[in-house]
Amino acid sequence: MSSFLKVLFRNVLNGPSTDPFPLGETFTPDRLRGKVLIDPELCMGCGTCKEVCTAGAIDLSELADGSGFRITVWQNSCCLCASCRHYCPTGAASLIPDWHAAHPEEDKYVRIEQQTVKYEPCSNCGTLMRPIPAKLARKLYASSPELDPEQLRHLCPACRRLRDALKGRPFPVAAAKVPAEAQA
């Protein structure tokens, strides 16, 4: 009898244990996996996320005119396993704890995360390429203070090789065409 009264008292003091949601606020853990976001500043379009995506929810395709690429995450297919975040080499994929996912049928195909990334011309030869994100370039060249990451990230891979071979001498004028031929 007395233990029953103890429980009764405790319940009266603490109030109901029911979460007031959806009539009031509810709690959201900070690390809850609710929705995938792609950062267009960091995405290099390598396709690792598309490869590892358990549900096949990620699509990565070149734009029709070849001026960039488009990455699409279909939220209604995403199983929130966070493989994309785990394997993304540049940290472009992230998950936010936004779990408000219920939606009427007409919004079904609207719920996508889509980012378009445009290529930029190489500062030496003009070939269209995706520059290395500034944050990543600083990290990559951190051990070589004599290199300027800001300058290197705007060079295409072929021109970076050429730059290494020239050992600090300026690019020859004719070299502007070399990478284009090498790629062809």
Binding site: D19, F21, P22, T26, L32, A55, Q75, N76, C78, C79, L80, C81, W99, H100, A101, A102, H103, P104, E105, D107, K108, R111
Partner: peptide, 17 residues
């Protein structure tokens, strides 16, 4: 279908919604 609630699985709060 009238309502979709994605998630694998969805949170109880999302189901309530």
């Amino acid at each position: 279908i009238d309502v979709n609630v994605p998630g694998c699985p969805p949170r109880p709060q999302a189901i309530l919604e």
